[in-house]
Design a protein around this nucleic acid. Structure first.
Lengths: 233, 233
DNA sequence: GTCTATATGCAGATAGAC
DNA sequence: GTCTATCTGCATATAGAC
C-alpha cells in the first residue's frame, strides 16, 4: 500500500474515532488501532499528531463544502417540480400571508436549515468533533491559521447557498450579503451548540423557523410586482 | 486555611488557568501550581478532577447568571435617564423609522447584544473555556447532566432578560417566549463561536444588529397607540 | 493535617531488528 | 520499508513520613 493511501486511511480513521469519542481521545494509538495499522506507521505518514490535525481540518472543511454543494444541486432540481419538501409537520398557515413567491422562498430557507439539522441529528458526534477541532486549533499556535480558514470557508459556503437560493427563488437580497452570510453561520453554529447540549430537536427547529422567516423577509422579488416596467405603469 | 476555602481557591485557580490555556491544559498540577499549593492538596479537596469540573461548571454558570442579572439591573437604571449607550458608531438613521418606542426598544436589544460582545472581546479565553467545558462534559458520561443543566440556565437567563427588556420598554412579546429565548441563546452562542475564530468584531456586531432588529420586531407596544383607553377613543 | 515521594498508566515520538 | 520494543515525559491518584 502506498504512503499516500495510508495517509488517507489514517485521516479517515482519525475522523471516525474522533467523531465517536472526541478529539482528546484521538491519540496516535487510537487512530492506528482504528486503521488496523501498527503504531510506527503513524510517524511514517505524519511528522506529528498536529500535522495530521492540520490535514484533518482541511479535509473536513472540504467535505462540508462539498456536502453543501450537493445539497444545493438537489435544491435546484426541486424548483417547479413536485418536490419532496412536503413534511408532515411544519406550519402551513402563516400568520400574515405574503406573496406566494415570498412564502415559497421562506419555505425554501426553512427546509435548508431543517436539512442541516437533519445532518446534525443523524451524526451528532461529527458536528461536536468539528467544534472540538476548531477550539483545539484556536488554542494551538501552529494550527490557529486553519481555525480561521475553517470559518472563512463556512462564510463562503453560506454565501453561495444564499446566492443560489435567491436565484432559484427569483429573489434579490436587500441587505449586505457578507453580513447575511455571517448571520446564517451564526444561526447554524448556535443551533448546533444548543442542540448538542439538550438534543431538543423540536425547540431547535422552532427557533430556526423563526430565524428563517426573518431572513426570508430580507429578500425582495427580483422583478417587483407592482412598480415595474413598461406594461406596469 | 479551611478546607472549604481551599476548595474555592482551587476552583478559582482552575477557572483562571483553563480560561488562559484551555481545559486540556488544566491538569491537577497546573491548577495547584496556579493556586500555589502542593499537589496532594488537590485530592484532599476533590475526590477527582472530574469532581472539580462538576463544581466548576456549576460555578461558572452561576457566575454567568449573576452577570446577566447585574447587566439587567444596570439597564433598569438607564430608563429615562441620560444613559450611557450613545456610542460613537452605531446606525442612528434607520431605513424605515417606526414608532419612537419601537426604535428605542430595538436600540435596547442592540445594546444588550453589544454588551455581551464586549464581555467576549474583553476575555475571549473565558468564553472559549465555557465551550470547551461544555463539550468535555458532553463527552464524559458522569458530567453529561451538567452540560444539559448549563444550557437550561442559559435559557432561563435569556428568558428573564427578554421579560425584563419588554417590561422596561413597555412592550409585549408576540411569539412564544421559550422559542424566542432559545433564538437569543442560539444567536449569542453562534456569535461567540464565529468571533472566536476570526475575531472580526465589526462583522459580528453587524450580524447581531440585523438579528436584534428582527427580534425587536417580534414585540408590540403593550398599550397599542391608537386603540387605547378612555382618553383615546 | 500537611506535603514529599511514589505508584501506575498512557501520551507522542523513535531506535533498531528483520 | 516494516513493525516490535522502548525512550521519555507527564497524567491522575495515593502512600506514608513528619
Amino acid at each position: 500500500m502506498s504512503a499516500d493511501a495510508r495517509r488517507a486511511e489514517l485521516l479517515q480513521a482519525a475522523l471516525r474515532v474522533m467523531s465517536r469519542e472526541g478529539v482528546a481521545a484521538g491519540t496516535t494509538r487510537a487512530i492506528v488501532a482504528e486503521a488496523g495499522m501498527p503504531l510506527a506507521t503513524f510517524h511514517y505518514c505524519f511528522r506529528s499528531r498536529n500535522e495530521l490535525l492540520r490535514e484533518l481540518i482541511t479535509l473536513v472543511t472540504t467535505m462540508e463544502r462539498d456536502a453543501a454543494a450537493a445539497a444545493m444541486a438537489e435544491t435546484d432540481g426541486e424548483t417547479g417540480g413536485p418536490g419532496r419538501d412536503t413534511g408532515p409537520d411544519g406550519d402551513p398557515a402563516p400568520e400574515r400571508a405574503g406573496a406566494p413567491a415570498h412564502d415559497h422562498f421562506r419555505e425554501t430557507l426553512r427546509q435548508g436549515l431543517r436539512g442541516y439539522i437533519g445532518l446534525l441529528t443523524e451524526n451528532p458526534g461529527h458536528e461536536l468533533f468539528l467544534f472540538e477541532l476548531n477550539h483545539y486549533a484556536l488554542r494551538t499556535p501552529e494550527l490557529r491559521d486553519l481555525a480561521i480558514e475553517q470559518y472563512r470557508r463556512y462564510y463562503d459556503t453560506a454565501t453561495q447557498l444564499l446566492v443560489t437560493a435567491a436565484e432559484v427563488g427569483g429573489m434579490r437580497w436587500t441587505v449586505d450579503l457578507p453580513v447575511l452570510a455571517r448571520l446564517v453561520v451564526t444561526l447554524t453554529d448556535g443551533a448546533t451548540t444548543t442542540w448538542l447540549a439538550d438534543r431538543d430537536t423540536a425547540a431547535t427547529l422552532a427557533a430556526l423557523d423563526l430565524a428563517a422567516d426573518h431572513v426570508a423577509g430580507l429578500a425582495t422579488p427580483r422583478q417587483p410586482v407592482s412598480s415595474g416596467y413598461p406594461d406596469g405603469t
